[in-house]
């Protein structure tokens, strides 16, 4: 089924973000693991795997719409040096992804591509939840101090 070319290029942009996200969260997860922060490792590892599954859905959708998914392009990773900075880098990434996705969902609505819209809405929901989780961590660090927070992540 032939898809709209504006939607196809927008889907490729979302795919690039997902592919970048896979790597950023995977590296952060394993950095946490290296420091023994297993709770943070688990959370970031799961996020990375989820991103892979989301990328898979996008790739399949792009192929279905007779486009070519661009798996070559990768955005810049923002990798922190310590926990708080890493959480901050992730929050910045999530915020950018959420604001990238909203106009694309509106474009799908406008072009009446409701199936693509649904796929993107599902991804957006998950990304918003992860941003909320990141904000919770920020709140916890501000209120219990970084030492106690880190102890809770062992």
């Amino acid at each position: 089924m032939k898809g709209n070319s504006a939607i196809l290029s927008a889907l490729n942009e979302v795919l690039t973000t997902e592919l970048t996200s896979i790597n950023q969260f995977f590296l952060h997860a394993r950095m946490y693991k290296n420091w023994g922060l297993s709770a943070l490792n688990d959370k970031c590892y799961k996020k990375s795997i989820k991103d892979m599954k989301q990328a898979d859905v996008l790739i399949e959708r792009i192929l279905f719409l007779e486009g070519l998914p661009n798996l070559q392009r990768l955005g810049a990773l923002s990798i922190g040096e310590e926990t708080q900075e890493m959480l901050g880098c992730d929050a910045k990434f999530q915020t950018a992804q959420i604001s990238q996705m909203k106009p694309i969902i509106a474009l799908c609505e406008q072009e009446k591509d409701f199936v693509t819209r649904q796929i993107l809405v599902d991804i957006l929901e998950y990304e918003e939840e992860h941003l909320d989780w990141l904000e919770t961590q920020d709140y916890q660090i501000a209120n219990m101090g970084i030492e106690k927070y880190l102890q809770a992540q062992l």
Binding site: L77, S78, I79, G80, E81, E85, C89
Partner: peptide, 13 residues
């Protein structure tokens, strides 16, 4: 944060 991941250079550097 790391600015250049290829060479491990940070914003502090």
């Amino acid at each position: 944060m790391y600015v250049c991941l290829c060479k491990g250079i940070t914003d502090k550097d």
